[in-house]
Simulated scan of single mutants.
Amino acid sequence: MHPRNDTATGRGPSVLAAGDWTARRTRHLDRVARIVEPYQERKAAGTPHPVHDFLFTYYSFRPNQLRRWHPGFGTALAGPGSGDYLRYTGYRSVTVDGDSVVTVDPAVLEHRRSTVEFVAGLLAATEARTPRLNCFGLHEWAMVYRGGAEAIRHQRVPLRLGFDGTDAVVESMPLRCTHYDAFRFFTPAAAPRNETALDRDSQIRREQPGCLHAGMDVYKWAYKLAPLVDSDLVMDCFEHALAARELDMQASPYDLSGYGYDPVRIETPSGRAEYVRRQQQLAERATPLRTGLLERCRQLLS
C-alpha cells in the first residue's frame, strides 16, 4: 500500500500500512543490533573498547533509545501494532480517511522549535564553509600534552610515543582545531597553542565541514530531534560517526594495535597525507547526511 494523506490537497500525515512500517522497523532493529549487542556484551564483561564505546559514552543517546524506530514527523502508522506507539512520549492518535492512525504530535514540534532552529542554523553555517583539512587530528594529542598520567583518557591503552614523544609532536606542528567540543578537552598547556581560542558562543561561526568531529556530531543533532527525525537517518549518521571515530583514534597518540587498528602516524609526512586523504573521504560522506538533516529541519520549520 502506498502512503496516503487525509485530504485531497495533501495536507496531513502520510500513512504507512502495517506491512510497510513493520518491515522498516525490523530492518532498523537488525541494523542497530549489529553494533549495540557487542557494546552491551563488553559492558557486562567490563572490557571497554576505546574506539567504539565512545558512541555510547560521549553521546547521550542510550542503546534502548537507538533501538526504538521512529517514522519521523508527518508520517503516520496504520494497522495492528501502531497503537503501541501511544505508550511513547510525543505520539497521538488521529483519524485519516476514517481510519485511526498514530503519528508524532505537532505539540512536540512546537515545544522543540528552538532546538530545530539552532540545529538548522548550525548545519547551514557549517555547510556553507570550505572544508579545512590541515588539523591532522592533533586534538587527541592536545588532550594529553604535558598533562601526565592524569590526562590519559584511555587507561588501558599505552601511548605510542610515550609522554615525551607525544609532547614533541604537539610542539612540532601548529594546533588548528575548529571544533569547540574537542578544544574544551585540551590540557591547560595545549589550549593556548591553538590558533584560535574557541568557546561555545563562537561554535556556529567556527564549525566547518572538514572537521572530523563536526561530521560525527551530525549524529548528535539527528538524535536530539527524535522523534521528529526518522530513525533511518539517525542510523546513517550513527554509522558515519563510527567510521569517523575509527580514523580519529587511529591518528591519536594511543597504540591501538591490540584492537586491530594500524596507526595513522601523523607525526610523519606520509601519515599526514593519509590522514588528509581519509579526512576528505569522510567529509564527503558527511555532506549528504548534513544536507539531509538540514532539509528535514527546514521542512519542520516551514
Rank of each mutant, 00 (worst) to 15 (best):
T95G: 13
V119L: 01
T89K: 06
S93E: 14
H70V: 10
T75L: 11
Y88W: 03
T103I: 01
V108C: 01
F118N: 03
G121T: 14
P80D: 14
R67G: 00
V116G: 11
H70G: 08
T89Y: 04
R92F: 01
P80L: 14
D99A: 14
H111F: 01
V101Y: 14
Q65H: 00
R87Q: 06
H111R: 09
S114K: 08
V96C: 15
P106G: 06
V101H: 08
L86K: 14
V116M: 03
E117H: 10
L109Q: 05
A78G: 15
G74I: 01
L109H: 14
R67T: 02
L66E: 01
G121D: 13
Y88L: 05
R87C: 02
E110I: 11
G83D: 10
V108E: 01
H111N: 05
R92S: 05
S93T: 13
S82F: 12
Y88M: 02
Y91D: 02
A107G: 06
D84Q: 05
G83N: 10
H111D: 05
G72H: 04
P71E: 09
E117T: 13
W69Q: 04
R68W: 00
Y91G: 07
D99Q: 08
D84Y: 02
S100R: 09
L86S: 06
G83E: 11
T103R: 01
F118S: 05
G98V: 14
S114E: 05
A120M: 02
R92H: 06
G72I: 04
W69H: 10
G98I: 12
G83Q: 13
D84M: 10
A107N: 04
F118P: 13
S100Y: 11
